[in-house]
Amino acid sequence: MARDIQITFDCADPAALAAFWAEALGYRVQEPPAGFESWEQALEAMGVPPERRNDASALVDPEGVAPRLFFQRVPERKQAKNRVHLDVRAAPGLEGEARMAALEAAAERLVSHGATRLERHEPAPPLGAGHIVLADPEGNEFCLD
Rank of each mutant, 00 (worst) to 15 (best):
P49W: 01
P49T: 08
P49V: 03
E51I: 03
E51A: 11
E51M: 00
R52M: 14
R52H: 13
R52L: 14
R53S: 07
R53A: 06
R53D: 09
R53Y: 04
N54G: 07
N54M: 00
N54C: 01
D55F: 09
A56E: 02
A56H: 03
A56M: 06
A58R: 11
A58K: 01
L59I: 10
L59S: 08
V60F: 04
V60Y: 09
D61V: 06
D61Q: 04
D61I: 09
P62D: 01
P62I: 05
P62Y: 05
E63C: 07
E63V: 10
G64F: 03
G64D: 06
V65L: 12
A66Y: 05
A66T: 04
A66L: 15
A66H: 10
P67N: 03
L69I: 11
L69E: 05
F70G: 05
F71K: 05
F71D: 08
F71V: 11
Q72T: 08
Q72S: 08
R73A: 15
R73H: 13
V74R: 12
V74L: 07
V74K: 03
V74Q: 10
V74H: 02
P75A: 12
P75D: 14
P75C: 01
E76Y: 09
R77K: 13
K78Q: 14
K78Y: 02
Q79Y: 05
Q79P: 01
Q79I: 11
Q79M: 13
A80M: 06
A80D: 11
A80C: 01
N82G: 10
R83V: 14
R83W: 04
R83H: 08
R83A: 12
V84Q: 08
V84D: 00
V84K: 03
V84L: 15
H85D: 13
H85S: 09
H85G: 06
